[in-house]
Amino acid sequence: MAFQDYNIFKGIFASEWVGLDNFKEIFGMKDFWNVLRNTLIISTYKIVFVFPVPIILALLMNEMKKNFFVKFVQTTLYLPHFISWVVISGIMLAVLSPNFGIAGDFFKVLGMKPVYLMADPRYFRALVVLSDMWKEVGWGTIIYMASLTLIDSAMYEAAIMDGANRWKQIWHITLPSIANVIVLLLILRIGTIMQAGFDQIFVLRNDMVIEVGEIFDTYVYHYGIGQNHYSIATAVGLFKSVVAAFLIIATDRISKIFGAEGLF
């Protein structure tokens, strides 16, 4: 379909083949480069700012005794993962509203004029990253917590005997022990860089922030289904899928080089 001038009435078998024309067209479109840039920027922000947080949280949580408090913290941390983005966007609209929410006061404290964060292109990406962090960091800690429990406690006892303090223990025992998990997850995460979080951005985007918020999947939907540019949008989608699949396979190979088990 991406190589056709698809006509919805003729169907896929009767539509005209146009070779690579659709791809020529999309590479010439301003929108396409903007969408590519947005996707990569949002994904990169997420990797840089969100990815390390569960590691830090898991390390700190690991330093606490396993008691009621830890259970409680974990319960609150995991909860947002199961709530849909539709509901979360509703909560964000309320909490961040300059009229109802707490955002109004926040700006007053900083001595700024309250703005509607959700509809401001300057803050949109920050909101996407922060809300993603809020929703998913707790979930992210699970895997690190599990690998932390596998560390042999005898190593810590030996380290304490040798006079290593808490930071030295973390630096020399804990981190090296989970390093391969971190590397593996990071590589896998980079493999999905073409996905900037479809559901999230689909519900958070609005006309005010389209310039900075439109990513591949939302673009394909609005341009293709919304405006009936089936072939062009499919070609954009295919470009995304090919790059994404290539990245996943490539990262799988890399993770195998690092000695991890890999995906397949």
């Binding site: 999947d217 394909v220 289904i225 089936y230 989608g237 295919l238």
Partner: peptide, 11 residues
């Protein structure tokens, strides 16, 4: 790994 994309799925 290789998803068809939104529009082919829709069709």
């Amino acid at each position: 790994i290789f998803e068809g994309g939104i529009i082919p799925t829709y069709l």
